[in-house]
Nucleic acid binder design. Structure first.
Length: 314
RNA sequence: GGCGACAUAGCCAAGUGGUAAGGCACGGGUCUGCAAAACCCUGAUUCCCCAGUUCAAAUCUGGGUGUCGCCU
């Protein structure tokens, strides 16, 4: 099986993925495949730090800026689209560069996780949630124990209600257990040959500083207007999760002073970055570069070397 | 200067004689169809300081220091 070469750039928010990826795309004649659960949305520009047309420098960016905020989205849909896009890019002899901070999307795509057709059943989900409110987590866990011992053990440790409900939902709608489906999801080998470059900072404060400053810049460039529009239009369960709007709602409602809301955006972003790091740090195949130790130029050059060595035998 | 209140973890804070609740933040972690989400774990040998009462003090008493409020 001939695998498709795919360069991958991951890392926490504000680590400089966008800039590096555009430079690499120029060098290698590549196209960007975004792996970002929020930049997929239209009109959510400032808050998601979506690269502007200028910043994109004529490089084609896929899976970005195409979905209406009122539509929800999922990993499964992402993977379907991304596989297609990568195939297309590579068929035109260009280098696909997957760039993004949504670890779940990146991993599911690159590991070629198979998502079996599951009709999303909102009613069932709602019913299960009511059951949870009425009888508690343990009641739902007991239900799981009946059909999927392994999932029961996994879920009873953390009591994450979202995942518990999902587990039951999966069984009810497919007749298969989550354990079984998870095994099946690894059926197909990955069609990709990857080089993964990770951007992070050695000193956490360094990244946090960048985050804080970037949020201030978002405010300066019109986040308030964007938030006002976003909050007054139709959104989906996916898009409302974005950091940068919900925090400002408190200010618009006159419940919290602006400065405090901005502080909340910064805090949520910092925590988000921390979670991204815990996710990506587990992946031992990622080659990390510290943005507070290397210059942009060094990172760029080392990335080029890495990609050349892996893909072009040079 | 006088009077009063308060002083407990980075912050907010409960506790009024029986061996330091809780929340937030920080830090660490989990992750297979909402993932910028959701969830889990973690902190005070000590309660501003000193002395005293008591079997026992964050809790009571005296003194000191600090903060806040009111008064002249």
């Amino acid at each position: 099986m001939i695998k498709i070469n795919v360069a991958v750039i991951v890392g926490p928010t504000a680590s400089g993925k966008t800039e590096l990826s555009v430079k690499l795309a120029k060098y290698f004649d590549g196209e960007i495949v975004s792996a970002d659960s929020m930049q997929i949305y239209k009109d959510m520009n400032i808050a998601t730090a979506k690269p502007t047309v200028l910043e994109q420098q004529g490089i084609k960016h896929h899976l970005m800026d195409f979905l209406d905020p009122k539509d929800s989205f999922s990993v499964a849909e992402y993977c379907t689209l991304a596989h297609k896009v990568i195939k297309d890019i590579s068929s035109r002899n260009k280098l696909p560069i997957v760039v993004g901070g949504t670890g779940l999307y990146v991993d599911s795509l690159l590991n070629n996780i198979t998502f079996t057709e599951i009709k999303s059943d909102e009613k069932l989900r709602g019913d299960l949630y009511k059951l949870y409110e009425g009888k508690g987590v343990d009641y739902l866990l007991a239900m799981i124990k009946e059909f999927d011992q392994e999932s029961y053990l996994r879920l009873s440790e953390q009591k994450n209600i979202k995942r518990i409900i999902r587990c039951i939902e999966v069984f009810e709608t497919t007749g298969k257990t989550q354990t079984q489906l998870n095994e099946e999801s690894h059926r197909f080998e990955s069609p990709y040959n990857t080089v993964k470059i990770g951007l992070k900072s050695k000193d956490r404060e360094f990244l946090y500083d960048r985050i804080n400053r970037r949020v201030d810049m978002m405010i300066d460039t019109g986040l308030l207007d964007e938030a006002r529009k976003f909050l007054s239009s139709k959104t989906s369960v996916t898009s409302v999760q974005a950091i940068g709007y919900k925090e400002l709602a408190l200010y618009f409602d006159g419940v919290m002073p602006l400065e405090e809301c901005i502080g909340k955006i910064k805090m949520n972003t910092r925590r988000y970055a921390k979670r991204q790091l815990t996710w990506f740090l587990r992946d031992e195949s990622i080659i990390w570069m510290n943005i507070d130790e290397l210059s942009k130029y060094e990172i760029y050059n080392q990335s080029i070397d890495l990609i050349k060595r892996n893909f072009y035998n040079g």
